[in-house]
């Protein structure tokens, strides 16, 4: 929730048509959208669970001294794993990993995409050609095979590796969108006006271009965060994450490899996937409100 608040512009962009009479800040626009509001509330709940995990979780998620293989119910809300860990506690702690990966990888991916998109859009000629080529290359190279190939070589398997491979493969889509937006904006009258009034390149970039790209950047961040959360879960499910971290992906990995399906421990199998789905749904819903930032027709009054 905090990242939405801080990244949203304080003022409405200057090129907005005059008929939107009431000037509202970006946060109000997003909040006034019913879907986005639902998403923000769900996301806030996840953040609260992640922050208060030590209070909410009844057991240490790595504590494997409990009776193993229990069905849901009683003191063990969702049962225990075959290794004797409490599944509900693991689920609660798993929220931390997904949120951290979503936030960090989302920020890194967005920054790379913004810098490359800006540079490619502003500089024409060879630099743009090379960067556009790199963007297209990164778009078509299959992401998951590239991620696992790099991860397989790495001697350490931790969150930093996962964030690294996500950043390496995830920036291209955002960079392409931002380059297109810069190309569109740079030919508009207010940029020409700024140039004629003697503004330097940096001033034009940060006072004219970037403020008009805020909604695109925020939407790009949400998309990157969604992708990163999914990628972390996928990589951990394939056993390429840090085996000692408790995440929803690694829970599914252990559930699958310990035959939770055959022993009928449905909660072990079901819960991490549903938690992931709910978190991604929340972020997708927030994105509807962010779309309304850049497109006033989508706003709900």
């Amino acid at each position: 929730m905090t990242e939405v608040e801080t990244l949203v512009p304080r003022e409405t962009p200057p090129d907005r048509p005059a008929k939107t009479v009431k000037r509202r800040n970006g946060w109000q626009v997003v909040w006034s959208n019913g879907k986005a509001r639902t998403g923000i509330v769900i996301l806030a709940l996840f953040v609260a669970v992640a922050v208060c995990a030590p209070v909410i979780a009844p057991f240490n998620p790595k504590d494997s001294t409990l009776p193993p293989g229990l069905q849901p119910g009683g003191a063990y809300l969702l049962g225990t794993t075959n290794l004797g860990q409490d599944i509900f506690s693991q689920l609660v702690y798993g929220a931390q990993v997904s949120l951290i990966v979503g936030l960090l990888a989302g920020v890194v991916v967005t920054l790379i995409a913004l810098v490359i998109g800006l540079v490619a859009g502003l500089l024409q000629g060879v630099v743009d050609e090379i960067l556009s080529f790199s963007i297209n290359l990164a778009l078509v190279v299959p992401a998951l095979p590239l991620m696992v190939t790099i991860a397989a070589y790495s001697p350490v398997h931790g969150l930093s590796l996962i964030i690294f491979v996500i950043a390496l493969t995830g920036w291209a889509w955002g960079a392409r969108m931002k380059r297109a937006q810069v190309l569109l904006l740079r030919s508009q009258d207010f940029v020409t006006a700024a140039r004629f009034s003697g503004d330097g390149l940096w001033r034009i970039v940060f006072r004219e271009l970037v403020p008009n790209m805020v909604s695109l950047v925020v939407a790009g961040f949400m998309g990157a965060a969604i992708g990163a959360i999914g990628a972390e879960a996928g990589l951990s499910f394939l056993g390429l994450g840090d085996p000692s971290t408790v995440s929803w992906g690694s829970m599914s990995y252990w559930a699958n490899s310990n035959g939770a399906m055959l022993t009928g421990q449905w909660a072990w199998l079901l819960a991490p996937g549903l938690a992931l789905s709910l978190l991604i749904t929340a972020l997708t819903l927030i994105n509807f409100g962010i779309d309304a930032l850049s497109n006033p027709q989508l706003r709900e009054e």
Binding site: G230, A233, S252, L269, L270, G273, S277, I280, T281, T284
Partner: peptide, 22 residues
């Protein structure tokens, strides 16, 4: 389809095995 798109891919596959096979 929007709902299905939020579900993790591996999870859909696991559910298919769990329900239709096991």
């Amino acid at each position: 389809s929007t709902f299905l798109s939020t579900l993790p891919f591996f999870w859909i596959a696991l559910m298919l095995i769990y329900v239709l096979a096991n």
